[in-house]
Write a protein that binds this DNA or RNA. Structure first.
Length: 357
DNA sequence: TCTGGGGTCCTAGGACCC
DNA sequence: TCTGGGGTCCTAGGACCC
C-alpha cells in the first residue's frame, strides 16, 4: 500500500502529575493535585490532577481550596514550571527524531506530527514506544486526515492508546455528541448553538455556514460549521512560533486597597513584563492593563504606544492607563500584557480557532 | 477569603478619513 | 432640513485553549 499523508496528535497522559511521580515514585497510584504554591489555603487553582484525583471530581481550573476539600487524602504539590519544561523538551526532541516527522508543538504536553505512511497505527505505536523509552512518560495518539480530527481522536485513545478519526468515521463517532466536545467550542458557544436548534455535532455538520453568520459573525459562523464536519487544515506546520506578546498577572492573596499599594504592584508587574520582552529584543507597540476588582469584575485598559518607547516611557504609559482604575474599589488581580510587532512570515496562533485552520 | 496564569483570535462600536 | 457609504484604526470585551 502506498504512503499517504497523516496527521498525528500526540498528547502526554496526565503530564504534570506524571512528571511529579517520576521524581517521587512513592506517589504512584495516589491522588495528586498540582496547583499554585501547593497551599490549599491560598488563592490558587488546580493545574493538573492525577487520574486518581480526577475520580473525586477534581479538574484543572478548580479552586485549590475546593479540590483539597473533595480529596482529603490528596498529595498537593506546587507548580514547578522548570521541571515540566525540561520533560517537555525531551518529549518534543523525541518526536522530532522520528523518521520524516514534521512537528508542530501546541503546548507543554502535546504536538501535531505530520507523516507519510501506509500504516499510521504502527507509526503511532512506534512514537509511543520511543517517548516512553526516552522519558518514561506515556502518551496517547490521535490519527486523523485533518488537524481537528487528529486532535479530537486523541481523547478516544486515552490513556496510552491510539485512535483514528477520518472523514469515514467522523459522524459515526462524533455525530451524536454535544457540540461542546469539539475543539474550540466551549460552554458559551454550545449554548448559543442550542438556541439555534443545534445540539449535536451531526446537527452542526449539517448546518448551512451562512445561517450561522448572524449569530457568530462572518468568520466564526462558517468556522463552526466546518468544525462540525471535522474539516479544515491538514498540514502540520513546523515553522517556529513567535509570540505576539507577553503578559504577567498576579492574584493578590489580600486585596489591594490603597493607591500606594497599586502603584507599587504596577511597578513590579511592569518590570517583570519588560524582562520577558527584553529577552526577545523586540519593541513594545501596545499595552493592556487588566484589573480585577474584588470579588470578580474585570476591566481592561489598552493603549498603542510608539515602538521606540524605552522602559521608563513604558512605565509612564502603564501608570497613565492605571489612572483609569476606579478609586476606592479593592483590587484582587492586576495583569499587564505587552504587544510586539510580528514579522510577516510568522506562523499564526497555536490554537485551532480561526485563520488557517 | 471561591475564582491561576500564559497565550491566541474575533467582534462590536466609535472615531476618523475620503 | 438633511446628513451616504466604504475603509481603516483603535479600544473594550469575549471566548477558548493549555
Amino acid at each position: 500500500m502506498a504512503d499517504t499523508p497523516w496527521v498525528l496528535h500526540v498528547d502526554l497522559d496526565q503530564f504534570i502529575a506524571a512528571v511529579e511521580v517520576l521524581r517521587r515514585p512513592e506517589l504512584a497510584g495516589k491522588p495528586i493535585i498540582v496547583g499554585g504554591r501547593g497551599d490549599p489555603n491560598e488563592r490558587a487553582v488546580v493545574s493538573t490532577a492525577s487520574y486518581e484525583a480526577r475520580a473525586f471530581g477534581v479538574g484543572s481550573g478548580m479552586p485549590l481550596r475546593i479540590a483539597a476539600r473533595k480529596v482529603p487524602d490528596a498529595v498537593i504539590l506546587p507548580v514547578d514550571h522548570e521541571a515540566y519544561l525540561e520533560a517537555s523538551e525531551r518529549v518534543m526532541a523525541t518526536l522530532r527524531a522520528q523518521p520524516a516527522a514534521t512537528v508542530q508543538v501546541l503546548g507543554w504536553d502535546e504536538a501535531f506530527v505530520g507523516i507519510e505512511t501506509a500504516d499510521p497505527e504502527a507509526y503511532a505505536r512506534a512514537v509511543q514506544a520511543a517517548v516512553f523509552e526516552r522519558t518514561q512518560l506515556h502518551c496517547s495518539v490521535g490519527i486523523g486526515d485533518t488537524l481537528v480530527r487528529a486532535k479530537v481522536a486523541t481523547g478516544f485513545g486515552k490513556p496510552a492508546g491510539v485512535f483514528r478519526l477520518t472523514a469515514a468515521n467522523w459522524l459515526d463517532v462524533m455525530g451524536g455528541r454535544p457540540t461542546k466536545e469539539l475543539w474550540g467550542v466551549g460552554a458559551k458557544v454550545s449554548g448559543r448553538l442550542s438556541k439555534l436548534g443545534i445540539a449535536t455535532v451531526a446537527e452542526l455538520a449539517a448546518a448551512d455556514p451562512q445561517d450561522l453568520i448572524p449569530e457568530f459573525g462572518p468568520r466564526m459562523g462558517p468556522w463552526y460549521a466546518q468544525l462540525g464536519r471535522g474539516e479544515g487544515a491538514n498540514v502540520v506546520d513546523d515553522t517556529p512560533w513567535v509570540a505576539r506578546g507577553h503578559s504577567r498577572e498576579t492574584t493578590f492573596q489580600r486585596d489591594l486597597t490603597g493607591a500606594a499599594q497599586v502603584h507599587e504592584a504596577l511597578r513590579e508587574l511592569t518590570s517583570r513584563v519588560l524582562e520577558d520582552i527584553a529577552a526577545e529584543g523586540r519593541p513594545v507597540i501596545g499595552l493592556t492593563l487588566k484589573v480585577r476588582y474584588a470579588p470578580f469584575s474585570t476591566k481592561t485598559y489598552a493603549r498603542k504606544i510608539p515602538a521606540t518607547s524605552d522602559g521608563n516611557e513604558i512605565l509612564t504609559r502603564v501608570l497613565e492607563l492605571a489612572s483609569g482604575i476606579e478609586a476606592g474599589h479593592p483590587i484582587r488581580l492586576l495583569g499587564l500584557r505587552a504587544e510586539m510587532p510580528m514579522p510577516d512570515d510568522a506562523r499564526k496562533g497555536h490554537t485551532p480557532t480561526r485563520s488557517g485552520w
